[in-house]
């Protein structure tokens, strides 16, 4: 199901843990599919000196978290802001299509941690953790049937390919 790189990061996740007194925290969760991720940042001279994560989720969610922290570590805040879901998925040499949403979670958590860092700098309090309750697009602009992975029309309530009802998804 998963490729070697994904399995390596799942089996030996890098940068697991908590940073005490972090400069930024990003927390994202998706109760619908159940993944939750927390990213902690230590920033020195506008550079990510240390980054750690905690993740509740499947193999790909853990691998994404691990790879994300590897990519972000040592980068300047400005460079880290440009890290996208695609970068993480690409570095992992691909994820199963129905697991691509996990890479969103990773980049979202990082961007939230950076935002938190910048807010703290100007004295703002931490924003409440983002909770995604509704269907959200996780593969870029396109929408896929969660049952058969065939591309479907935005807002479709029925998948013509597998005859699944999609009313709950939209």
């Amino acid at each position: 199901m998963y490729n070697k790189t994904v399995m390596d990061h799942f089996r030996n996740p890098r940068n697991v843990g908590v940073i005490e007194d972090p400069d930024g925290i990003g927390e994202v969760g998706n109760p619908l599919c159940g993944d939750m991720m927390t990213i902690y940042l230590k920033v020195e001279n506008e550079c990510i000196e240390d980054i750690k994560f905690q993740t509740f989720g499947c193999g790909s969610a853990i691998a994404v978290s691990s790879m994300l922290t590897e990519i972000a570590k040592g980068k300047t805040i400005e460079a880290a802001k440009r890290i996208t879901n695609k970068d993480v998925a690409k570095a992992l040499e691909g994820l199963p299509k129905n697991k691509l949403h996990c890479s969103n979670l990773g980049a979202d958590a990082l961007q939230m941690a950076i935002k938190d860092y910048e807010d703290r700098k100007i004295g703002k309090t931490r924003p409440a953790p983002k909770r995604v309750d509704k269907h959200e697009h996780s593969h870029g602009d396109k929408c896929y049937c969660p049952y058969c992975d065939i591309e479907i029309q935005e807002g479709a309530t029925f998948c013509d390919a597998c005859q699944s009802s999609l009313e709950e998804e939209h």
Binding site: G34, G59, K99
Partner: peptide, 28 residues
């Protein structure tokens, strides 16, 4: 999460089944 548990047990050559949302095609 169950899929992670299943994968790690599989590394120890133990096969079990999980019913986590992550392990189903529907992600529900």
């Amino acid at each position: 999460e169950g899929e992670s548990v299943m994968l790690m047990l599989d590394d120890d050559n133990i096969a079990v089944s999980t019913r986590s949302a992550c392990a189903t095609g529907s992600l529900r």
